[in-house]
Nucleic acid binder design. Structure first.
Lengths: 194, 194
DNA sequence: CGAAAATTTGACATGACTCAACTGGAGTGG
DNA sequence: CCACTCCAGTTGAGTCATGTCAAATTTTCG
């Protein structure tokens, strides 16, 4: 389990990992397996850990008045999950995160967060990650504000080819902010064109 | 000019500023005044500085095929502007940033960025800022995906009361991703209710 | 096989856009 | 001070994209 994360950090930082660093990572990150549909985080809880997905697939979503699930984020191998706002401010989260496939994750509890973050390689990785996430969010925001469902789906396929294969259409539809019926129609009208 | 920024950093960091720090800030940040409608950043350029708005109001927007301006961000006093992606990756930006009011800004060129960021107080402030921006973006994304124009306008008023007073309706409409006509109708139907 | 989940399809409703006209300031120059 | 223009905002009619609801079909998986 931990080797995946160690490799992940190595690929995303300049600084080499010392054996102390590795020991800290193995101590701070607790492996946990989640079954399909099991919650990593539940609405109303305080998000007490960050999750590194070693294997599997998860959804982050909120639930509206009608009981509909509105998917905000999807994650698979080598992604992070958790509600950053709830984690940092220690306030109840409005999101659910659950496992779509059986998922192996490494849990970083708040207790160790500062210690781990003091590690140079980790902190370099985190800065890089923050930047990339910011860019991705900005892009998604722009798409979501200014573009049609069809264009958003296009952009999604191009920027997230890995996710397309791992989640069913109705989940992707919700991620894009359209109904499953609309996405189905978008797809069928494409088959005609090609 | 610089006192505003220094105060801004003080309020957002634990660590006190040394006189060396202050000297560095005064050296690294170049004051510049922009007239109404003057560009801070133009589509196709590489974003060579980050802007701290001391006074005034700016818009960040992209232009679509039809020549329509799609506003992605608005900024006023004590906000940062610039295209982070273009700045970091040194790639041409797809955005324009221009002054909506006459604007005083402090320009931090890339040359000094690392040096300034090595300052503890600044870096603390930056982490805080990144977090808050992340939360705000996440919130806006959620609104934009799952909510009607009416609800988005509501949320906008609540979370950005300062911006409401500084920009005309058609600018806010574009920020929300609706036409000015739609926003006008939303507002008039509210007057009836109350 | 049989049940549950996912996708497709159709009919219809509706929110938001487009286009065009009109109103009402806010400046500006004579 | 008036005429003129520019810009923001409003209003109406028609259209289009997407949502809703209900049913049929296909796929998945125990």
């Amino acid at each position: 389990m931990h080797e995946t994360l160690i490799e992940y950090i190595r690929e995303r930082s300049q600084t080499a990992l010392t054996s102390d660093d590795i020991a800290l990572i193995e101590k701070a990150f607790m492996p946990k397996r989640f079954k399909k549909r099991q919650y990593l985080l539940h609405e109303g809880e305080i998000c007490k850990c960050l999750f590194f997905i070693v294997k599997g697939a998860v959804r982050q979503y909120s639930v509206d008045d009608k009981g509909g699930e509105q998917i905000l984020n999807l994650g698979i191998e080598n992604w992070w999950a958790g509600d950053r706002e709830s984690f940092h401010k220690e306030m109840p989260t409005i999101y659910n995160i659950d496992a779509w496939e059986e998922t192996d994750a490494l849990l970083l509890p708040k207790l160790y967060y500062n210690e781990v973050n003091a590690m140079t390689a980790f902190s370099e990785m985190r800065v890089l990650l923050d930047d990339n996430q910011h860019f991705a969010n900005q892009r998604r925001l722009k798409m979501s504000i200014n573009h049609t469902a069809d264009e958003r789906y296009d952009d999604f396929i191009k920027s997230n080819p890995l996710l397309v294969q791992r989640f069913p259409q109705h989940v992707i539809a919700s991620y894009l902010g359209v109904t499953k019926e609309t996405l189905s129609r978008i797809r069928s009208s494409r088959l005609v064109k090609k």
